[in-house]
Structures are given as structure tokens and as C-alpha cells.
Nucleic acid binder design. Structure first.
Lengths: 236, 236
DNA sequence: GCTGACAACTTATCAGTGTTCACTCATCGT
DNA sequence: ACGATGAGTGAACACTGATAAGTTGTCAGC
């Protein structure tokens, strides 16, 4: 091959992917190798939303959308796990920001906690697939430690612990549990709600009546927040 | 491969799996085809525990362990999803049983709820990978509806809703939320705790310090149960 | 303008995956 | 003894993530 192909830039290099994918992307200039990196992350984010599942997004599909060959991706990311982690991590800095913002509002500690809970749930439901990738169990364990060192999720968790500690000092929150343990409990409740709601959404999109008799999302969210609110106060 | 190896029939009746796997399983008698089905499910359960992750267990590995060729599995299960679902579903009937048992003990509704919560968490942590497979988001949505109709998880959820309704009638539980919504909230809290603890365990097994400053599992479990206990009572 | 070095890729390929089709073989009722 | 049938096998397909080696465009220095 490459036999008689005159390097006619103007039109011989038409769509490498006729159907849907992008045509061949022009090569980056010498210092601008990192631009491809950003385009890859963008494509991953799009495909993740479209397919809804990390495993349904192949490296090849990403490469095709960007208009590049699959190995080019490995010039910027060590493997698929790191690629997806980086993609979702970027989005999660926004969540961390929103949580810190909610934690810094005026009002009682309980009110601030509720704001944080709402912000968390809203954001996680908004970016469902990304959220699931970042929280996806053991797979996160494969990421190199220095990447996780400044994980936005951990920063956000620290804010939660601090807020709860503040509430304990202010006498708004029960004192029979460690602030960190209470923070994990709160996180677990909110996280669990998000996971269940995302599961349900996925099931509905598959037109399969998996969870038949559940209340609507809003009622679930309100119930979880009410549970947390009363739960952190204690004094049954 | 493609090394043009002569198919040496002369001693071809050697063990197909020399290293670790089982050797070739003797063929079942004519009416006993279902015995293979049970052996497959057993092998899947074992491999799931060993590998810790559904995606790390291949059909070929299952077949090798059973001592059978990969296509034989498709005589008993439609695809990989159904195979794993059936495997985990079997284990989950035990959970459902334990929950119903806990719901039927003597004591106040709150005490019974706590027993149920403990039984749920214990069981989920005991069979971590199975639990995750069954709860694994959108993938469950691909299972045929009639399978899910008598999902043990749904039966268990109904028990939870009933118990909470009972508590509302007895005046032990807050009345400002729907019993089903409250049940989802309780479920979410416990489910979230399990997921976080399983994530942490997986991270530790990978010798990667993912979640550095978290309290130990016991404290987390107690905090979540306390949160739920106070949370369902309400009256902050 | 030329040239060599190097960044930015591509082509070809590997090993492994879920899954299917066509086929064999042992067992059973007759 | 024999044909039907249940219980499986072998080879192959269309994918996947990943790698090694080659190519090509671009830039600095002469």
C-alpha cells in the first residue's frame, strides 16, 4: 500500500472513517503535542456519556473520534485505566469546588451539610458515568499512588470531616462517634443514594423494569437528606 | 501461534490443561446435563472470589477450571452476564433469608432494623464480589426481565418497606416521609457503606494507599447504623 | 536551502476476550 | 444393531487492550 498515493493534502486524505468518526486529524506542531492529550480527554468524556459505561468505550473508538490511530493514545496515557481516571478526575475538581463552596456558606452546620449533600448528589447524577468510574471499587486501586495523592475526592472528604468536627464543637452534632466515622457514614448514605439512582436510571434506559416499586428520585433524595440530617444530630 | 503445528493425533488424549486447571471432565450421562451447570456455577463463584472482579474472570478460565471447552458454557447460559447473574443470585437467596430472619426476631422495630442492617452488611462484606456483581449498575439492566422478577434483592427490599411501615404505625419511626422513600434511604446508607468498605478493601489488597485517613471498618459500620437509627426516628 | 535530530505519529502485530457454527461422539430407546 | 439425540469439541470471527518498529512532518543550526 501507500503505492501510488500522491500526498495530495487537499482532498485525497478524505474521511478515513466515512461513517461517523472524525477524519484524520492534522498532525500537531512540534511543541504542541499536549493538544492531542486534551482532545483525547474530551473525546473520552463524550463517549462516556454516550455509552454510559467505561467498558463500552474502547480505546479504538476514542482514537477514531479524535481522528488518530489507537497507539497515539498511549503516547499520553499509560493505559486505559489512567486515561479514564484522568478524564473523570478533571471533572471532579469541579465537584470538589462546589462542595467547598457549599461548606463555606453562611448558616448552621446542619444547613451547610445539607447544602453539601445536595451539591454532591446533583453533581454525581449530572455526571453519572464519570462518577461511577472514579468510585469504581478496586479498579481505582490500580492507579499510581501519586495521582491519588491530590485526589479531589479526598480533598472534599477532608472538608466534610472538618464541617462535622465544627458541628460537634458547636453542639449541633452528636458526640458519641468519631468525626471521621460520622463523615464516612454521611458519605456512605449520599454515595449509596447516588449509586441506587444511577442504577435505576441505567435500568430504565435499557427499557427493563428492574426496580419496579421505587419512589421517584426526588423523594429518595429528600428522604436520604432527612435521614442524614436527623442521623448526625443523634439523640434518638 | 498459527505456527502450523501438526495436529498430532497420536497422543492427543493428554490432559488439555496440563498446568493448573482441571483435566478433561468426563462427559455426563444422557439425562445429567444439568450437573455441568452446577459445576460451572461453582467454578464461577470460586474464580470470582479469587480474582475479585467479574471482568477478571474469563469464560475460558471458567471452562478450564471445570475441565470443559468454552462453548459448553453456552449450552447452559445465554451469555456471560446471565452466567454471573445466576451465580450471584444463588448466593443472594441466602442474604434474603437472613434478612427475613432478622426482620422476624422479637424486639422493637428499631432493634429489628438494626439486626437487618448488621445482617446485610455482614453478608455483603462476606461475599464482596458477588454483591458487587449483583448491584453493578446498568449491567443488571441487561438481564432478562423474568429473571429479575423474583430477584431476592427485591424480596428483601419489600421486607424492609414492611418493617418500616410497621414502625410508622407503632409510632417508632418518623411520619414525614413515605415508607418506601425511607426504605430506599436506609438501603442507600447501608449499600453505600458496603461499597465504600469494599472499595477500601480492594485498594488495600492492591497495596496502594488509596484512602489514607479513614476510620476502621468497625467504626464505619457502627457510625452508619447509628446514623440510620437516629435518622429513621427523625425529630431532630 | 540543506540536513540531521527529534517529536509526533502510523502500520502491523500480539495475545486475549465473548460468542457462534459446524461437527463429533457417546449413550439410549427400540 | 442402529439410528436419534443429548452432550459436548474445534476452529473461527469480530472484537479488545497493548507494544515494537517504522515513518513522516517540523524545526534548529549551518
Amino acid at each position: 500500500m501507500t503505492s501510488a498515493t500522491v500526498p495530495d493534502r487537499s482532498e485525497s486524505r478524505r474521511s478515513t472513517a466515512p461513517g461517523s468518526g472524525a477524519s484524520r486529524r492534522p498532525r500537531a506542531r512540534k511543541g504542541e503535542g499536549n493538544r492531542l492529550r486534551e482532545e483525547i480527554l474530551q473525546a473520552v468524556a463524550e463517549l462516556l456519556v454516550e455509552k454510559g459505561n467505561k467498558d463500552a468505550v474502547s480505546i479504538r473508538a476514542v482514537a477514531k473520534r479524535v481522528g488518530v490511530s489507537p497507539p497515539a493514545i498511549y503516547l499520553h496515557f499509560a493505559d486505559k485505566d489512567e486515561l479514564f481516571y484522568q478524564c473523570c478526575r478533571g471533572g471532579f475538581q469541579e465537584l470538589s469546588r462546589r462542595l467547598e463552596e457549599a461548606a463555606a456558606t453562611a448558616g448552621t452546620v446542619l444547613e451547610r451539610l445539607e447544602q453539601m449533600g445536595r451539591a454532591y448528589i446533583d453533581y454525581a447524577l449530572e455526571r453519572g458515568p464519570q462518577y461511577q468510574v472514579l468510585m469504581a471499587g478496586g479498579e481505582t486501586g490500580e492507579i499510581s499512588p501519586e495521582l491519588l495523592e491530590d485526589d479531589p475526592g479526598l480533598r472534599a472528604f477532608a472538608v466534610l470531616v472538618d464541617t462535622i468536627g465544627e458541628g460537634i464543637e458547636a453542639g449541633e452534632i452528636r458526640t458519641d462517634h468519631d468525626p471521621a466515622a460520622l463523615a464516612v457514614a454521611v458519605w456512605a448514605a449520599v454515595h449509596g443514594a447516588v449509586m441506587l439512582l444511577l442504577s435505576r436510571r441505567a435500568a430504565e434506559e435499557a427499557t427493563s423494569p428492574v426496580m419496579p416499586d421505587l419512589p421517584p428520585s426526588d423523594a429518595t433524595v429528600e428522604a436520604v437528606l432527612a435521614l442524614v440530617r436527623s442521623g448526625v444530630v443523634g439523640g434518638s
